[in-house]
Design a protein around this nucleic acid. Structure first.
Length: 426
RNA sequence: GUGGGCGUGGCCUAGCGGUUAAGGCGCCAGGUUGUGGCCCUGGAGAUCGAGGGUUCAAAUCCCUCCGUCCACCCCA
């Protein structure tokens, strides 16, 4: 077949791997989660903060920990045209701490209570509940190291999940010590594992080198006996860490927050100290954590600020919504139009536009019908949108200076003077 | 980064070597001259994920790539 000289078909693009479009039908869920987060944060006196989507790469590379997956293979790194080395934010806490230092927030009353809703980026292999761009609701309380604040933070996350209407989730809690006591434990753990490395899975041999605490978290059957007999972190806690954790659990008891002590719970970022926690939904998938965090008393100092304690958590919108849908939690629907304005002839278009404007002026949602479409088509459209009223402007109405207002919920229909419609619907 | 399942109009699905790729939802237009939700009729819309190969013949078989889903890993 000879070439016909047809223009080449333009390239069709798809959203990048691991990203998704948020369509109108998804929006009620997002709005619901966001509104609930904002409401609960307001109740706890947390204030909104927004930080840039990209930062100097060091903000993340220096804080998360050299051996962590996030730093080693998940950060979106790029150089801008000026040669600066930048990174898309893989997590929120480090950026907020950078902002805390940069804006002198240490001189505000402590602790500074902050929250954010922002996209995070991780170059990861996507699967259910895991995306390369995901949105996190996070909260941070900076400047007070008292376990009282830990209790507040966990209470905030707990309240948020409850307010969303999720049920049956569990809170896992642990303490992983601090700079004083953890090194000794890590040494003991390594000493224990060293003679057994041939018995472990391959991943654990890597963990042994890079992130020994994660040895405790391995799910391989062959590693379980080793974990069961391993030295216990809780036996190595210093007095301060032990007292801190004891106070926290007492506060949680007072708050009637049920938690499950999980001595093998560790976190993926190196900056965590003492308290760590994770919330898991009733129906667990592989990506089960729907909200997790911990204390990070060394982080601000790591970023060049004065030694400042802090604690926070992150909760992923996509996973929360996944569980809202699984549990069939009802969310408020987007409000339907109050009025659909149908016009039947071109000469009525101007009247339709001004009528729509005046009705919107009294706070009613108005959707305009399609020009040149039949009345029947416009009524079908109005019905599909769930509109309450249809204002019809045809030749008759135009001549008489009126509109026909049809009630789609009932069957009634009446004629109103053009200039009285807005007042009538206000 | 490792393993496995799957990729057919916007969505869901049938077809699994052989005439113009079928149906449902949705969309558009009609069912007498200006009236919705139900129903009926018609229409538009598919490089059968992409590229290569086997064959007289491929949506159907093979390879590669891409995407997607699931698990590992990691984490929200």
């Amino acid at each position: 077949m000879a070439s016909t000289g047809q223009p080449a078909r333009p390239t069709r693009f798809a959203a990048p791997r691991g990203t998704a479009d948020l369509l109108p039908e998804d929006w009620p869920y997002w709005k619901y989660v966001r509104d609930t987060a904002e409401r609960v944060c307001a109740l706890f006196g947390y204030q909104r903060i927004e930080t840039p989507i990209f930062e100097h790469a060091g903000v993340f590379l220096r804080t998360a920990g050299a051996g962590t997956d996030i730093v080693e293979k998940e950060v979106y790194l790029f150089e801008d045209r000026g040669g600066d080395r930048l990174a898309l934010r893989p997590e929120g806490t480090a950026t907020v701490m950078r902002a805390f230092i940069e804006n002198g927030m240490a001189s505000r009353p402590q602790p500074v209570r902050l929250y954010y809703v922002a996209p995070n980026f991780r170059y990861d292999r996507p699967q259910a509940g895991r995306y390369r761009q995901h949105t996190q609701f996070g909260a941070e309380a900076v400047g007070d190291g008292d376990p009282f604040v830990d209790a507040e933070m966990i209470h905030l996350l707990w309240s948020f999940l409850r307010e969303l209407g999720l049920s049956g989730f569990t809170l896992k809690l642990n303490t992983i010590g601090d700079q004083n006591c953890r090194p000794a434990y890590v040494d003991a753990l390594r000493a224990y594992y060293r003679p057994h490395l041939t018995e472990t899975c391959a991943d654990c041999r890597v963990r042994f080198e890079k992130n020994p605490l994660r040895l405790l978290d391995c799910k391989e059957d062959r590693c379980r006996p080793l974990i069961a007999a391993a030295p216990r972190l809780h036996d190595y806690l210093c007095d301060d860490c032990r007292a801190h954790f004891g106070a926290l659990t007492a506060y949680l008891h007072v708050l009637a927050i049920d938690y499950v002590l999980d001595e093998h719970l560790v976190r993926g970022l190196d900056y965590y100290t003492r308290t760590v926690f994770e919330c898991h939904p009733r129906e667990e998938g592989a990506q089960s954590s729907i909200g997790s965090g911990g204390r990070y008393d060394g982080l601000v100092e790591l970023l060049g600020g004065a030694p400042t304690p802090g604690i926070g958590f992150g909760a992923g919108f996509e996973r929360l919504i996944l569980n809202l849908k699984r549990q069939q939690v009802p969310v408020p629907a987007a409000p339907p139009p109050d009025v659909y304005v149908a016009h039947l002839v071109p000469e009525a278009a101007a009247v339709a536009l001004t009528l729509a404007g005046s009705v919107r002026g009294v706070g009613r949602q108005v959707v305009l019908g399609g020009a040149g479409r039949s009345l029947k088509a416009q009524l079908r459209h109005a019905n599909a949108l769930g509109a309450r009223y249809v204002a019809i402007i045809g030749p008759d109405e135009l001549a008489a200076g009126v509109v026909t207002l049809r009630d789609l919920h009932g069957h009634g229909e009446r004629r109103l003077a053009l200039d009285s419609v807005a007042r009538e619907l206000a």
